[in-house]
């Protein structure tokens, strides 16, 4: 496996869609390639940091307002 191959498998690697053989090939490659090791680690951190931080919080006030507006619009159509 070379660096380009590794890159093409990266998403499947994180989504747990790879065969054991391919996972092992990736481990072997990253053991000897610092660039790919960093890309793998930091891409993983990228996904995690977005999962772990709510960027657009819906405050209770906003939610109430939204909810009332939605229901008012729908019920008016009845």
């Amino acid at each position: 496996m070379n660096c380009t191959d590794l890159l093409s498998h990266l998403s499947d690697y994180f989504d747990d869609q790879l065969t054991t053989e391919l996972r092992e090939e990736i481990s072997e490659h990253t053991a000897g390639c610092q660039h790919c090791r960093v890309v793998l680690n930091t891409t993983h951190q990228t996904i995690e940091v977005y999962k772990g931080n709510e960027l657009y919080e819906v405050s209770p006030g906003l939610r109430e307002r939204l909810h009332s507006a939605i229901m008012a619009k729908c019920l008016a159509k009845k």
Partner: peptide, 26 residues
């Protein structure tokens, strides 16, 4: 409603648009 609002805000990057879109989508 919260998920739909977040999706709309992520795509449009605009809070007022996201509110309108959430109402219209439902």
């Amino acid at each position: 409603e919260r998920q739909i609002f977040r999706v709309a805000q992520h795509i449009t990057q605009n809070r007022e648009d996201a509110e309108d879109i959430t109402q219209d989508a439902f």
